[in-house]
């Protein structure tokens, strides 16, 4: 046995039990708190999903989902959001190794992909409204605009947050607080992609089934 192994054994002996170690580092507490917030946000979305699922067939003689939804558009939105989630992951890796250029590059790519997603979604909404499919036309459309609109609103907030974080990063560098916030942002962004998975399945793909 060499010295290194013995050192390791000593270190293990020194590890404190969780009840004696004192409060957890702020990084972990902040991450966990934000995780709780995300879960509560998901619970809110589940209520919107439930109301959409109940009202999906209540089109009151107006246009139905099968007539309104364009699958090619949805596939493009899905690809954009998934890729932006990936580039956000790349950004997290760059933050972990404190590389400025890679972090900014990841943020710019994430922002552009997110903005492109938002643009496609807004164009889709405009097209629907031009066809007379406004939120007040039927219960189905009210539920649709509430559900997909609140997801779009979250994406908008996320984009604003990302810009703010880049300003903070360029002013303050990789301070603990900035890194913590960037970490929360990436959690938020990945969670939005999870909600989108449910949206494209429940709203768009199931909506066009015969």
């Amino acid at each position: 046995m060499n010295v290194a192994v013995e050192m390791d054994a000593v270190r293990h002996g020194e590890l404190l039990d969780i009840s004696e170690a004192g409060p957890a580092p702020k990084r972990i507490i902040a991450g966990f708190g934000f995780w709780i917030f995300l879960l509560s946000d998901i619970v809110m979305f589940s209520a919107l999903f439930a109301s959409y699922a109940v009202l999906a067939k209540a089109s009151a003689g107006g246009l139905t989902g099968a007539q309104l939804f364009d699958q090619r558009n949805v596939a493009m939105e899905t690809a954009l959001l998934l890729l932006s989630s990936y580039s956000c992951g790349m950004m997290s890796l760059a933050i972990n190794s404190q590389r400025y250029l890679a972090t900014f590059l990841g943020a710019v790519v994430t922002f552009l992909l997110g903005a492109a997603f938002l643009k496609l979604e807004l164009r889709e909404f405009q097209g629907m409204i031009a066809l007379g499919a406004t939120p007040e036309r039927s219960a189905f459309l009210s539920a649709f605009f509430t559900l997909v609109g609140s997801h779009g609103l979250h994406v908008t907030v996320g984009l604003a947050w990302l810009v703010l974080m880049m300003v903070q990063l360029s002013l303050r560098g990789f301070q603990d607080a900035v890194v913590r916030r960037l970490h929360c942002f990436s959690l938020f962004w990945h969670a939005l992609d999870i909600i989108w998975v449910l949206i494209f399945t429940v709203v768009y793909l199931m909506g066009v089934l015969p």
């Binding site: 270190r11 020194e14 590890l15 404190l16 039990d17 969780i18 170690a21 957890a24 580092p25 990084r27 972990i28 902040a30 991450g31 966990f32 934000f34 995780w35 997290s92 970490h183 990436s186 959690l187 990945h190």
Partner: peptide, 14 residues
């Protein structure tokens, strides 16, 4: 640093 491994990791951390 060694005590930190005893904490739960933050979500999103590997």
């Amino acid at each position: 640093m060694t005590t930190e491994t005893h904490w739960d990791v933050a979500p999103g951390e590997r």
